[in-house]
């Protein structure tokens, strides 16, 4: 069943269109920064964008930072929201459930396909970012500079970039879990995706309020940008481990809720 779901997801033109659109923004930003030579001022703009002017090999990180706050979660919410509700809206859900595999296995298969979409999307953004960065900007062949001002070897830079890709992927799993849960509540994929986005917008807004600081550590978007901590020296694991744990809690709770709802609901479409 997992293979069927993966095949269905990646055969859809809209999946690749989404990924292509997602990459358009970082490419546009790279071209504009190169043409104008205007990097963001300190304290403004996405992480690493000012550093790519001297080392284009860092552009995968800048590209991830560009899409992470909005574009990437929108794409994940749309795909996750469509996973079950899309089948219901198209009238194919009851036929899927007619197979002997059962609802829990269908839910797991949908989850795996959403996770695969997240992973492929993040990898493509990083790969396109690398190609863009090394094409548009100068590259330091031997090493890079950490956020703390120490030297990083090429191996360290590659290793930490791979860890950052993994961390961003995990960070998106919470969005996917919200989308999947809402997708089991409604027959409208749009409503499910908007529900997940509403949670993220609320989380981002609350994170900026001092009055919400007591609940800030539990907001789903709280630790998204902690991948920057991988490039400090020594690596600051505090927020990274909390970010992974928080996403694990959200994924666990929301999948349990999705399972409780989906395995007991009346499926009529």
């Amino acid at each position: 069943m997992i293979g069927v779901e993966l095949s269905k997801l990646f055969r859809r033109p809209r999946t690749w269109t989404t990924i292509a659109v997602l990459n358009a923004l970082p490419v546009l930003v790279a071209v504009l920064v190169r043409l104008t030579d205007l990097a963001p001022r300190p304290g403004e703009g996405p992480p690493f964008l000012s550093a790519v002017l001297t080392n284009g090999a860092l552009y995968p990180l800048a590209a991830l930072a560009i899409v992470l706050p909005l574009f990437l979660p929108i794409a994940v919410a749309v795909v996750a929201g469509d996973s079950v509700a899309g089948e219901a809206q198209a009238g194919t859900l009851r036929y899927l459930l007619a197979r002997p595999a059962g609802r829990t296995r269908l839910l797991v298969a949908k989850l795996v396909s959403v996770v695969a979409f997240v992973l492929v999307t993040v990898l493509v953004v990083a790969a396109v970012g690398y190609l863009t960065g090394t094409t548009v900007f100068d590259v330091q062949p031997a090493a890079g500079t950490s956020v703390s001002g120490t030297s990083l070897t090429q191996e360290e830079l590659v290793g930490r970039t791979l860890l950052a890709i993994g961390y961003v992927t995990v960070s998106m799993l919470g969005v996917a879990a919200f989308g999947l849960f809402f997708s089991t509540l409604t027959d409208s994929p749009l409503a499910a995706a908007l529900g997940a986005l509403a949670v993220l917008v609320a989380s981002s807004l609350l994170f900026t309020l001092d009055a919400a600081s007591p609940i800030a550590p539990y907001l789903p978007t709280r630790y998204w940008l902690a991948f920057v901590d991988l490039f400090r020296d020594p690596v600051l694991w505090r927020d990274l481990t909390r970010g992974l744990a928080l996403q694990g809690v959200y994924v666990g709770v929301l999948l349990a809720a999705a399972w409780a709802n989906f395995t007991t609901k009346d499926v009529t479409s």
């Binding site: 300190p42 304290g43 703009g45 996405p46 992480p47 690493f48 930072a65 703390s148 940008l225 920057v228």
Partner: peptide
């Protein structure tokens, strides 16, 4: 180190 979201 004073930590910022995009640097330090």
């Amino acid at each position: 180190d004073v930590l910022g979201a995009a640097g330090e």
